[in-house]
C-alpha cells in the first residue's frame, strides 16, 4: 500500500506533466501580460477549448482503438455547410429548402455520423489501414463540402455560406451567465464520453480492441462492431464541433477546418493517449486541449510573431511527449 502510494507520487505521468505545464504556462502568460487573465481572454480560451475539445473527444475514442481519423477536418466543414445550407436563409441563396435550426443540426449530425460509419465499414470490412481509409475520406468529404456549398450559394464555386440564425448564434456566440454555451456543451459531452469509456461494457471494450485486437476477438468482443461504432460516434462529435465553428462565424466556409485533424491528434497525444491504441483517457485529452488553447491564446496575447509560433509549437509538442518518456525511464531505473 505504502509503496504503491509512493510510486504513484513519483511516477509523473503525461497527464500530471501537462497539468503542471499548464499551470506554469498560465502563470507565465499572466505575469507577462495581465490581460491574459481577463474575463475576455478566459472566455476566448474556453471557446477554443470547446471547439477543439469536442472533436478531440471523438479523436480520443478512435485513437484508443488503435486507429486514427484524418477525415475530421473535412467532416467538420461538411457538417457546417450542411447545417448552414439547410437553413435556406443564406445570403445570395437560391435553394428552396429552408428548415428550422433543430432540424438542420440533426441532419448535419446524421450526415457526419454517416461519414464516420463509412469510415468504420471501410476499415473493418475492406481491411484498409485507418490512416489511408480516412485520408481518402478526407478527400471525399472535402469534395462533398464543395458540392453542398455550390448547390446552396450561386456564384463562384467554393463561396462560403453566410447567414443569420438565432440558434447558431446561441451555439457559437451565446453565453449562460458568464460561461459560453459551447463550453457547457463541451462539459456535458465530456462527462458523457468519460462515463461511457469508464463504466460501460462497450467503453471498456474500446480499450481492449486497441490493446490487442486478437485477444479482444477471443474474449468474445465484436471488434468490428465496436470499431464502426467508434468512428460513427467520433464523426458525430466532430460534426458538433463543425456546427459550433459555423455558429461562431455565422458563416460556413468550404475551406474551414483544413488540417484541424492534426491539431486534434496533437491534443490527444499531449494528453498521454498512445497513438498505438489501448492506453489513454479523455481526461488527458481535456488537459491536452486546454494546453493547446492556453498556448495559442497566450502566444497571441504576448504578441509572438506567428512565424515563431510554429517553431514554439513544434518544439513543445516533442518536448511534452519525450519528457514523459524520460520521467518514466528514471522511475523504472530507481
Amino acid at each position: 500500500m505504502k509503496i504503491n502510494l509512493r510510486k504513484s507520487l513519483i511516477c509523473i505521468n503525461q497527464q500530471k506533466l501537462i497539468a503542471i505545464f499548464l499551470v506554469f504556462m498560465f502563470l507565465g502568460f499572466t505575469l507577462a501580460k495581465p490581460e491574459f487573465a481577463s474575463s475576455y481572454s478566459i472566455n476566448n480560451i474556453l471557446c477554443t477549448m470547446a471547439l477543439y475539445g469536442i472533436a478531440s473527444l471523438g479523436m480520443t475514442l478512435v485513437i484508443l482503438t488503435g486507429g486514427t481519423d484524418l477525415s475530421a477536418g473535412s467532416v467538420m466543414a461538411l457538417s457546417g455547410v450542411i447545417g448552414a445550407g439547410l437553413l435556406g436563409k443564406a445570403f445570395s441563396a437560391a435553394n428552396p429548402v429552408s428548415l428550422p435550426f433543430a432540424a438542420t443540426v440533426l441532419i448535419a449530425l446524421i450526415f457526419s455520423g454517416l461519414i464516420g460509419y463509412l469510415n468504420g465499414i471501410v476499415i473493418t470490412k475492406l481491411k484498409i489501414a485507418p490512416f489511408v481509409a480516412t485520408l481518402a475520406m478526407m478527400s471525399i468529404a472535402r469534395g462533398l463540402v464543395y458540392v453542398v456549398a455550390d448547390s446552396v450559394v450561386q456564384g463562384v464555386s467554393g463561396s462560403p455560406i453566410t447567414f443569420m440564425n438565432d440558434g447558431y448564434s446561441l451555439l457559437g456566440q451565446g453565453k449562460i451567465g458568464a460561461v459560453p454555451v459551447q463550453f457547457i456543451v463541451y462539459v456535458i459531452l465530456f462527462l458523457i464520453v468519460f462515463v461511457f469509456l469508464k463504466y460501460t461494457r462497450t467503453g471498456r471494450s474500446i480499450y481492449t480492441v486497441g490493446g490487442n485486437i486478437d485477444t479482444a476477438k477471443l474474449a468474445g468482443i465484436k471488434t468490428n462492431k465496436i470499431i464502426v461504432l467508434t468512428y460513427t460516434v467520433s464523426s458525430i462529435l466532430v460534426g458538433i464541433s463543425g456546427l459550433i465553428l459555423v455558429g461562431r462565424l455565422s458563416s460556413a466556409s468550404t475551406v474551414a477546418a483544413k488540417g484541424y485533424e492534426l491539431d486534434f491528434i496533437t491534443a490527444v497525444a499531449l494528453g498521454g493517449t498512445s497513438v498505438a491504441g489501448g492506453r489513454g483517457s479523455v481526461i488527458g485529452t481535456l488537459l491536452g486541449t486546454a494546453f493547446l488553447a492556453v498556448l495559442n491564446n497566450g502566444l497571441d496575447i504576448v504578441n509572438v510573431k506567428s512565424f515563431y509560433q510554429y517553431l514554439i509549437k513544434g518544439l513543445i509538442l516533442v518536448f511534452a511527449v519525450c519528457a514523459d518518456l524520460f520521467m518514466n525511464k528514471r522511475v523504472k531505473k530507481s
Binding site: Q309, Y310, L325
Partner: peptide, 30 residues
C-alpha cells in the same frame, strides 16, 4: 528524435512539420 527520444514517428514528424514550416516562414519572411 524518433530513435533516441523514442517519440512515435507520427508525432515526431508532425512536430517537425510545424517546426520546419515555421523555419521557412522565418527565412522567407512570408
Amino acid at each position: 528524435v524518433i530513435t533516441k527520444l523514442r517519440v512515435e514517428p507520427f508525432i515526431a514528424t508532425l512536430a517537425m512539420m510545424t517546426f520546419a514550416r515555421g523555419i521557412t516562414y522565418l527565412y522567407t519572411g512570408g
